[in-house]
Amino acid sequence: MKKNITPYLFAAPAFLVLGYFSILPMLQTAYYSTLEYSFFGPHRFIGAANYVRLFTDPHFWATLLNSLLFLSVTPVLMVVSLTLALSVRNLLRGARIVRLMLFLPVVTPVVIAGIVWRWIFTEETGLLNHLLSLASVGPVRWLTEFPTNLVSAMLVTVWRGMGYYMMLFLAGLALVPREVEEAGILDGATPLQQVWHVLLPLLRPTLLFVAVVSSSAAVKVFTEQYILIPGAPLDNKALVSFLYRHAFERFDFGYGSAAGMVLFGMTLLFSYTQVRLMDREQSS
């Protein structure tokens, strides 16, 4: 076939946008992180000084640690959403409405979810502490005490995520041949044994996918905390809040970019695995 410029013309608009607004900014962040670059002044190359400052900044370590702690939503989400999927898939009636109810939090904007939960978490007059008080628990300092306020944001994340991961598990379970399970029942395996020894190994790709998607989102948590605990000290929040504080409240773009590079490094393993899984699935 002769040389054909047609595919280039088709690809050009998208790749101009992608290049200018995704690939180039990635390189710019790396470059900015080596600059003394304030919004208000000229910039100047300072080598690794931003990173040295970062690694000696206790607020950086505190927010980094919180981002890592936030990873504990992943095992919780996996257990909750797999349990839900196992329960929902044998529903004969009402499966659609149950999926609808569980999925509504997924499409709810984070800001709105944060607003609702902030009221539910309100310590003196909120719904949650009221319910807990009926069981003589609390009052729990959901918003004002660390690390409880970290857990509150995690709860919002689990609430918004469980329906999504349940759907992924349902799709994974749909691929498990019926005979495999029936064989397990005939062997006299208890339901739990059956899940553990038969289903989980077959669900490995889905489990891995859910784990990496949830983890890379967890490290990047921001809006939940921005809405839930706006007045809390920075040390109660996670790494993106640190980036936001320095880049957009103090306009220290160089320092913020260095934090951005750390964020990239932290999510890379998860997002790389995610993309690998998606690409492999597609080409097989």
């Binding site: 607004f21 990635m26 990047k220 980036l243 970019s257 951005g260 964020l263």
Partner: peptide
């Protein structure tokens, strides 16, 4: 991550 691109 989108979050690291907001500055540039």
């Amino acid at each position: 991550p989108k979050e690291m691109l907001v500055i540039p």
